[in-house]
């Protein structure tokens, strides 16, 4: 099996399609471990994984913790809100302190785009991006791909609609990179305030019409909407947004009959997605959670045991 082309997982953008394939195939094997009586293998016994969660996140953090434990790794989770662990300490200070713990991998969630790149520039062990600002959330996109493939097979040629605040969504970016690399046709949809400049250059098509986005779609990904209002708001009111870009059963009729609906969670029910859709037969939202652990197990395994291992180049 080819090793990953990258030493870190900073985003999907630098990955090769073969890397994505390797990760998803490995995740499938990992998924079977979670179905056993003893949900644990000794693959990473004696390894230490630091989870650095500097932005509130329960779901992704627990998912990484479970993944590490199923591989028998020791984990150390440092979480904090805001930008530093303790007052006055910078991310660089934190990184240097971490190095003293000699971790075998560092998982980082941070509110700043590019924070994982900063760590990767100065630290030896592999750095895994668990979501950075508005940049990328690569493990989410990988688990989304795994989930869609489980239901519908390879995504090549699929029409995938991603609806919501594309400009500020790391989930959207990682999914655009993943899906276009795997040959799907990505449609981005939202009001123009939520569509970032020149996003077509990432290989996606843009529409402001929900109906056009949903027409014949194989997959629909709904993004979570920020409900806090202010002068920088991208839409005037929540009811107006829900009426214009919310997903409901009637709208979903335009999509393919076997359409799959994804949402990275947590859901604003009745706003970006109606409850009967979120809980309905098209929804794979619960599969996403299970696959999340498998994908993260795969990444930890592939990066920590990567041939030439630590100190290698990529």
């Amino acid at each position: 099996m080819p090793a990953l082309s990258q030493r870190h997982l900073l985003g999907i953008e630098p990955l090769l399609p073969g890397d994505i394939r390797t990760i998803v195939e490995t995740a499938k094997s990992m998924k079977s471990i979670s179905k056993r009586a003893i949900k644990k293998v000794p693959a990473l016994r004696g390894k230490t994984i630091v989870n650095l969660f500097l932005e509130p996140s329960t779901r992704t953090r627990s998912s990484f913790e479970i993944a590490a434990k199923r591989l028998s790794a020791d984990t150390l989770t440092l979480s904090g809100t805001g930008t530093s662990l303790s007052k006055g300490e910078t991310l660089m200070d934190t990184a240097r302190n971490l190095e003293a713990m000699a971790p075998d991998a560092i998982v980082i969630r941070h509110s700043a785009s590019g924070a994982p790149h900063m760590l990767a520039r100065i630290l030896e062990p592999p750095v895994i991006n668990a979501g950075d600002g508005s940049h990328e959330h690569p493990t989410q996109a990988l688990l989304d791909l795994m989930t869609v493939e489980e239901r519908k097979g390879p995504v090549k040629g699929f029409k995938v609609a991603i609806v919501g605040d594309i400009a500020h969504s790391r989930v959207a970016r990682s999914n655009i990179f993943t899906l276009t690399k795997m040959g799907a046709l990505v449609w981005l949809c939202g009001p123009a305030t939520m569509i970032p400049r020149e996003v077509e250059q990432l290989g996606a098509r843009v529409t402001n019409s929900m109906d056009e986005a949903l027409e014949g779609a194989d997959v629909v990904m709904m993004l979570r909407i920020q409900l806090e209002r202010g002068s920088g708001s991208l839409f005037p009111s929540v009811p107006e947004y829900a009426a214009t870009y919310g997903l409901n059963r009637a709208r979903l009729k335009r999509a393919k009959r076997d359409v799959v609906v994804l949402h990275p969670g947590p859901i604003n029910r009745g706003i970006e997605i109606a409850s009967d859709v979120a809980d309905g037969e098209f929804s794979v939202i619960l599969d996403q959670v299970e696959n999340g652990v498998a994908v993260r197990m795969a990444l930890l395994y592939l990066l920590i045991t990567r041939p030439e291992g630590r100190g290698g180049t990529a």
């Binding site: 099996m1 090793a3 490995t26 499938k28 094997s29 079977s32 395994y301 592939l302 990567r306 041939p307």
Partner: peptide
């Protein structure tokens, strides 16, 4: 290992 052992089911 020099290359990743393939993970099979």
């Amino acid at each position: 290992h020099l290359e990743h052992p393939e993970l099979r089911s």
